[in-house]
Design a binder for these strands. Structure first.
Lengths: 249, 249
DNA sequence: ATAGGGCTTCCCGTATGGCGGGAAGAAACT
DNA sequence: AGTTTCTTCCCGCCATACGGGAAGCCCTAT
């Protein structure tokens, strides 16, 4: 079936930008088009409000896309849909559970439901953390294509605690592991005394659109021997969330 | 500046769909283009995942748009940005505070932070309520263009309690009132014993993108004489949220 | 049953409008 | 000042998007 070339290309541009804000020539190189073509498309997209210029000619996704997304059936809004499942998990596991999405090379936390304990991990909502430091990041990386993973590994990785894994090869091994397991654990890597596990959340079409994690103080979480069971609980809920996302209004 | 026609048109289609899912010919009429053109654009958009077919040839916004929006600078994610402000308000007011967005003729609750009391309103997150029944709905309606408001008023309005206002003219008066005040109160209309107040949340560009409400048991909320002060607190926070939404990464 | 309206899908000739090379201008870096 | 790298603009060419029309479907009404 014939597709409209310009629209295809416009979305290639949007897609590239949504991964990481970029300038005209950078985008042109990335999606292999003449700069003039990309410039023209960006111009159109900008007047439509689909992209916005931020600084020094870099573009990011604009308000039009955001409003379109928010006006859509909210049953597809991951935060809203997941809420009840998060609560269920907190009751089951007794520790805080949260959601995150990937933003460039970072993980962005977008929701959290706290557990019943007095001592608990503070709410990460709104925070951005580099992918190599947190388990949610590992599950995101596990789903990246090889070349994207390579360029991630080639970057400089900051250390947060003595336990933070910063060696590219070590990170790669963990990513491969996460790919096989479908989940990932981290212990004391973002902050001492904090352990967490994450699983990916898929859209109904199979893309990874977010991650769900559970975290608690290392001295009581995870209870020894329960690691796999906990991961299984998360995986199960993640599957239910994906299913809910598929329903129409 | 020259714009790319096909992309312009593709977004006209997307925009129309985001207002209301529709079929090819309906869209063609709405944006005044030949059906074949709209069909071709929709085809392209569908393979791109920007729209999805729901039933019998109706389309809605698709996963691609949603993931683009969620991967964008999360400072623009209303839930994430508002979180800390909601907590502040709960501390200030002592009652539960929440967020909602409009979905068709309903209000959809997307977040809530509970107050410290034992007796409190249950979490509405995930619920959809008709606009005429809740204060958030009234502030949304207050911002609708006249013709849209008329078609809303022309519909049948369900009664939830004896206090629910279902008369179109009475609803219209309340909407006009909300427009003037910038906030709206409801008492015992969704459920007996439940009072609430809501204010609109604007995007930095001035559109209403959501509402924030505070609600509690009618026997203690609102404290007599404090109605305006409470509304002012909400309005103030809503303004701060709008400002936060404007910052770039 | 049958006709009719309204819908989506497909085809294909036309000319519009998107394309991309290239040059000029503007920053940023050395 | 020189050099590289970027964005913006222009313009002739022809690829490609366009839209009329017809075919095929599924309803509803008569």
């Amino acid at each position: 079936m014939a597709s409209v070339q310009s629209v295809d290309r416009a979305f290639a541009v949007l897609h590239a930008i949504s991964r990481r804000p970029a300038g005209i020539s950078e985008l042109a190189r990335e999606i292999d088009l003449p700069t003039s073509t990309v410039a023209r498309l960006l111009n159109t997209l900008e007047t439509l409000g689909a992209v916005e210029r931020i600084d020094h000619g870099n573009f990011r996704i604009g308000a039009t896309i955001l409003t379109m997304a928010s006006s859509v059936d909210p049953a597809r809004n991951i935060t809203a849909v997941a809420q009840t499942h998060l609560i269920d998990l907190v009751e089951q596991l007794g520790e805080a559970v949260g959601l995150s999405v990937e933003v460039g090379y970072d993980v962005q936390y977008i929701a959290q439901v706290d557990g019943p304990n007095e001592v608990q991990v503070r709410d990460w909502t709104g925070e951005s953390i580099p992918m190599h430091v947190v388990c949610s990041g590992l599950v995101f990386l596990a789903n990246w294509p090889e070349d994207a993973l390579e360029s991630f590994l080639a970057r400089k990785h900051d250390r947060f605690t003595p336990s933070t894994v910063v060696d590219p090869e070590a990170i790669r091994m963990r990513v491969i592991r996460a790919r096989a397991d479908g989940y990932a654990w981290t212990r004391d890597e973002l902050a001492e005394g904090l352990s967490s596990v994450a699983v990916p959340i898929h859209s109904p079409s199979g893309d990874v659109i977010g991650a769900m994690h559970c975290h608690g103080p290392s001295y009581r979480f995870p209870v020894a021997g329960q690691e796999e069971w906990i991961a299984a609980q998360l995986t199960d809920k993640a599957r239910r969330i994906s299913k809910s996302l598929g329903y129409k209004s």
